[in-house]
Amino acid sequence: MTKQALLLSSLTAALLLTGCEQQSGNGFRPVEMTPKLEAARNKALVLCSGCHGPEGIGTADFNPNLACQKKVYMVKQLNDYRNGQRGNHIPMVNIAKMLTEEEVDSISEWYSLQRCPSDTL
């Protein structure tokens, strides 16, 4: 391989990798556990894990997975429960009303960062 071809292939590889996020070997970004995320995880374990599992994977076929869910979507759904726009599931209405806006945001972020095992999809 000529120097020019080697340089061109190196530049091409560098351009392709530009902007890629560093990931761990298993394809998932490592989660940095901040105090906010620790508190969110602890709150989720108390309020959510009974139906949605400790890792965000539903405990029954009719309980949705929360792991890997988009944060914006979860914030909207929890706020809809809190505001009465979504009142079709009374336990979720009651749980959502116990959460502050900050907790809704941080719990949604916590679940959005969790892994999504392919065998649960």
Rank of each mutant, 00 (worst) to 15 (best):
S9P: 02
S10Y: 00
L11P: 04
L11K: 07
L11F: 11
L11G: 13
T12Y: 08
A13P: 00
A13V: 14
A14R: 03
L15G: 12
L15V: 13
L15H: 06
L17T: 11
L17R: 01
L17S: 11
L17K: 04
G19Y: 03
C20L: 14
C20M: 14
C20K: 10
E21D: 10
E21R: 06
E21P: 02
Q22D: 04
Q22A: 13
Q23H: 07
Q23S: 09
S24D: 13
S24Q: 14
G25D: 11
G25P: 05
G25K: 07
N26S: 07
N26I: 06
G27Y: 05
G27L: 12
G27K: 09
F28C: 07
F28M: 05
R29H: 07
R29E: 14
R29W: 02
P30S: 11
P30I: 05
E32Y: 08
E32W: 00
E32F: 07
E32Q: 13
E32T: 14
M33F: 06
T34C: 05
P35K: 03
K36D: 15
L37Q: 01
E38R: 08
E38C: 04
A39L: 08
A39S: 12
A40T: 00
A40Q: 07
A40N: 02
A40I: 01
A40R: 05
A40E: 06
R41V: 05
R41E: 15
R41Y: 12
N42G: 00
K43I: 03
K43T: 11
A44R: 00
L45S: 08
L45P: 04
L45E: 10
C48R: 01
C48N: 06
C48T: 04
S49F: 00
S49I: 03
G50A: 13
C51N: 09
C51S: 10
H52N: 04
G53L: 06
P54S: 14
P54F: 10
E55I: 02
E55P: 04
G56T: 01
I57S: 05
I57T: 09
I57R: 08
A60E: 11
A60D: 08
D61A: 15
D61S: 14
F62L: 10
F62G: 01
F62D: 12
F62M: 11
N63K: 09
N63L: 08
P64Y: 01
N65K: 08
N65A: 05
L66P: 09
L66F: 14
L66W: 08
A67L: 00
A67F: 02
Q69G: 08
K70G: 07
K71G: 01
K71Y: 00
K71M: 10
V72L: 12
Y73F: 13
Y73Q: 05
M74G: 01
V75H: 02
V75E: 15
V75R: 01
Q77A: 14
Q77Y: 03
Q77L: 15
Q77T: 15
L78S: 05
N79K: 13
D80E: 15
D80Q: 12
D80A: 13
Y81T: 07
N83C: 03
N83F: 01
G84V: 06
G84W: 00
